[in-house]
Design a protein around this nucleic acid. Structure first.
Ligand SMILES: NC(=O)c1ccc[n+]([C@@H]2O[C@H](COP(=O)([O-])OP(=O)(O)OC[C@H]3O[C@@H](n4cnc5c(N)ncnc54)[C@H](O)[C@@H]3O)[C@@H](O)[C@H]2O)c1
Ligand SMILES: NC(=O)c1ccc[n+]([C@@H]2O[C@H](COP(=O)([O-])OP(=O)(O)OC[C@H]3O[C@@H](n4cnc5c(N)ncnc54)[C@H](O)[C@@H]3O)[C@@H](O)[C@H]2O)c1
Lengths: 212, 212
DNA sequence: TTGATTTTGTTACTTTTTTCACAAATCAGC
DNA sequence: GCTGATTTGTGAAAAAAGTAACAAAATCAA
C-alpha cells in the first residue's frame, strides 16, 4: 500500500507490536498470525494488518508473519534500524540517570554529548562523557554528528535549551521537562511526562467507581 | 453537556492544558480564551471547548476562562483533586529514583508502600519507607489504603507483580516494565515507556528527511 | 494436480473524532 | 438600558480512524 499520511496511533501501536514480538522471539516463537498478535496486543487483527500495510507487505498469506522478519520490517519503518547520536542538555538528577541507563545504547540511541550551563558541572565526567558548556552545542552537534536533543533541564529553562539545540542544527527533540516548547516548523518534538499516565489512571479508576 | 464516553485523546489533552495553565497561572495570568490557550497547546480552539464540554461548563461567554477555576475544574474532572496512595513493586534503580522524586507527593500521588521479593532488600529503608516482602502486599494494601500499583520490576517479572497487586485488591496499575500484562477486566493499566517517544521521533525525522 | 484450509492485503463500510459555524451569554462604553 | 464587540457551548458537517468482509495467495493432504 505505502501511503502518505500515517496516523499517530499507528506509530504508537508499532512500538507495542515491536515490544511483544521481541518477547515472543525470545521465547522461541518463529511465526505468528495477525490474529494471535492482536490478542497479545489487545487490538483488532485488521488493525494490525492495516498498520503494517502503510509500510509494505511483510506477511505470507495462509501462513502469517515470520517474527524476525517482521521485527526488522517494523524497525525499518520506524527508522530505528540504525544508530542515532543524541545530545543531552541538563546534567541533573534525571540527566545523570539517563546517561547511566545502558538501555539507550542497546536500543540504538547513543548519548554522545552531555551539556550543562552550570560552571560547577562543566568539565566533570559523567558515564564516560565530559560535561560541556551548552554554549558550545553548535560545534559539538556538527563534530559529533548529533541528531536528537534530549532536554532534561528544569521546565523554565526548557525553551532556552530548545533554542540552543535548534540553532545548533539538531533534527529533533525529546523534552522531559514539564513545559511546552516552541521550535521552527520542520523540527519534531516529543514530550515525555509520566504524570500524564498517572492522571489517565486516576481518571479511569474514578470513572469506574462512579459507575459502580 | 456531561457525556458518557470520553476519548482517550481528550484525557491526554486535558493533562497538557493543565500543564500550560499551571505555567500561565504562575506567570500571573488570570484569564485566558480558548483561542489563546489553543495557540499555546497547538490545538484547535473548538477542540478545547469540546474537551471541556464533556465535563461541564467552566467558561464565561464573552470573557474566557478564569485560569485558577479552570485548573480546579480539570483536576476534578480527571480525579486528581485528591490524594492517591500508591504501592511501588520492585525497589531497583528505577524504583529508588521514583521513591526519591518529590514531585509524586507534590502532585498527589503518595507512595506509601515499597515492595520487593529480594531478601537482601527487604527490611532496608528507602526514602523513609521500609521495603516489604511482596508476599505481604494484600495486608498492606488494605491497611495503608493503597489504590494504585506501580510496577518497576524487570519485564519478565511484571506479570507476577501484576498478579500480586490484583489479588491484593489494587484499583489500577502503572507499568514501567517494557512488557504487556494481563489483568481482569475492570482494572485499568497504563504503560510508561519513553522509548515509544524516541521511536516516534526517529520516525518523524526519517520521514522529513525522506521528503527532502 | 486438485480441492480444502488458512491467513494475508485491501476495499467497502461503520464509528469516532475533529472542525466549522453560529446562537446564546457577557461585558464595556455610552 | 441599549449597542457592539467578544467568546463560549453545541449541533451539524467533515475528516479520520477503526472494523468487517472477502478475493488473492500460500500450504498441505490426497
Ligand atoms: N528527577 C526526576 O526523576 C524527574 C522525572 C521526570 C521529569 N523530570 C524533569 O526533568 C527535569 C530535570 O529534573 P532534575 O531532577 O534532573 O533537575 P536538576 O535540577 O537536578 O537538573 C537540571 C540541570 O539542568 C541544568 N540546566 C539548567 N538550565 C540549563 C540550560 N539552559 N542549559 C543547560 N543546562 C541547564 C542545571 O544546571 C542542572 O544541572 C525537570 O524539568 C524535571 O521536572 C525529573
Ligand atoms: N533504570 C531505568 O532508568 C529504567 C528506565 C525505564 C524503564 N525501566 C524499567 O524498569 C524496570 C526496573 O528497572 P531497574 O533498572 O530498576 O531494574 P533493577 O533490576 O534495578 O530492579 C528491579 C527490582 O525488582 C525486584 N523484583 C523482581 N521481581 C520482583 C517481584 N516479583 N516482586 C517484587 N519485586 C521484584 C528486584 O528484586 C529488583 O530490586 C525494568 O523493567 C526496566 O526495563 C528502567
Amino acid at each position: 500500500m505505502k501511503s502518505e499520511h500515517i496516523p499517530k496511533a499507528t506509530i504508537e501501536r508499532l512500538a507495542v507490536y515491536l515490544q511483544i514480538l521481541g518477547n515472543l522471539g525470545r521465547d522461541g516463537v518463529n511465526i505468528i498470525s495477525s490474529d494471535k498478535l492482536a490478542q497479545a496486543c489487545k487490538v483488532n487483527p485488521s488493525q494490525i494488518r492495516k498498520d503494517l500495510a502503510y509500510f509494505g507487505e511483510f506477511g505470507v498469506r495462509g501462513v502469517g508473519y515470520y517474527i524476525q522478519e517482521l521485527i526488522t520490517a517494523i524497525k525499518q519503518s520506524l527508522g530505528i534500524d540504525r544508530h542515532w547520536y543524541c545530545a543531552l542538555v541538563g546534567v541533573g538528577n534525571l540527566g545523570r540517570a539517563l546517561l547511566r541507563h545502558n538501555e539507550f545504547a542497546r536500543r540504538g540511541f547513543i548519548i554522545r554529548g552531555a551539556f550543562d550551563c552550570d560552571q560547577d558541572k562543566i568539565g566533570k565526567v559523567e558515564s564516560g562523557l565530559e560535561v560541556i558548556c551548552s554554549k558550545r552545542l553548535k560545534t559539538k552537534v556538527r563534530d559529533l554528528g548529533l541528531e536528537i536533543g534530549i532536554i532534561t533541564t528544569p521546565p523554565e529553562r526548557a525553551q532556552r535549551a530548545a533554542d540552543y539545540l535548534v540553532e545548533s542544527g539538531i533534527k529533533g527533540i525529546i523534552n522531559f521537562a514539564p513545559a511546552r516548547i516552541a521550535v521552527p516548523e520542520p523540527i519534531p518534538v516529543e514530550y515525555v511526562d509520566y504524570f500524564h499516565q498517572f492522571y489517565a489512571l486516576a481518571f479511569h479508576i474514578t470513572l469506574s467507581q462512579h459507575r459502580a
